[in-house]
């Protein structure tokens, strides 16, 4: 069975993500550290908490994360877990992992913040993560910040809330979604299935 490590930063709700992984037929492992032995096929950075403490915590695991990447193990960052893939955030001080170069900035005040609810994806690039996901698929967002990658080619899908922003990013085996696939009905379930398929290799 495919085993997915869900990194526990010590705050917030991992239960939903764990349940979603189980629903898709894989085995979730919840750990506060990244085990050095390759006992998992994929890594999920969940979307709970605040940029500053989470990025600090992740930086201490830097070499373990680099090993995961070197092994070619797929990584999926969800919401804040996606934002920490970048270098820095307007949410607070701290250095992100910088796996995708760029900064995370606040949504414009012309719209309601947080951006909360269902919105449509505009797919801009093909990716195995988005296999079978229709143009305009509805997914569930809840966030106040969004990433601005330096390299536009990492943007796989966009969404709009006051501004058009990257909703799915990816390069090599590293992916991130600004929305919550575990709460996004059928489209979300499809993306989790795709991610699990990549993990199975």
């Amino acid at each position: 069975m495919t085993r997915i490590l869900i990194l526990d930063y010590g705050v917030g709700n991992l239960f939903s993500l764990m349940s979603a992984i189980q629903r898709e037929g894989a085995e979730p492992l919840i750990r506060q550290e990244i085990p050095r032995d390759p006992c998992f096929d994929g890594l999920i950075l969940p979307g709970v908490g605040h940029f500053t403490p989470v990025s600090e915590r992740l930086r201490r695991m830097r070499s373990a994360i680099d090993e995961v990447i070197e092994r070619g193990t797929p990584i999926l960052g969800v919401c804040l877990g996606m934002q920490v893939l970048f270098n820095r955030s307007e949410e607070g001080p701290g250095q992100g992992l910088g796996l995708i170069p760029g900064a995370v900035v606040r949504l414009p005040d012309s719209v309601k913040i947080p951006h909360m609810g269902w919105n449509r994806l505009h797919l801009v690039r093909r990716s195995p993560l988005l296999d079978g996901v229709p143009q305009g698929a509805w997914v569930y967002f809840v966030h106040s910040f969004y990433p601005q990658p330096e390299d536009e080619s990492v943007v796989l899908a966009r969404a709009e809330h006051g501004v058009s922003f990257p909703a799915v990013v990816g390069r090599d085996h590293i992916f991130g979604t600004q929305f919550h696939p575990e709460k996004s009905g059928e489209a979300g379930s499809l993306m989790l299935k795709n991610f699990l398929r990549l993990c199975r290799r």
Partner: peptide, 11 residues
């Protein structure tokens, strides 16, 4: 709550 979260894929 746990039972609902196990089944439900909406918030």
């Amino acid at each position: 709550v746990q039972e609902v979260a196990r089944t439900l894929d909406i918030p």
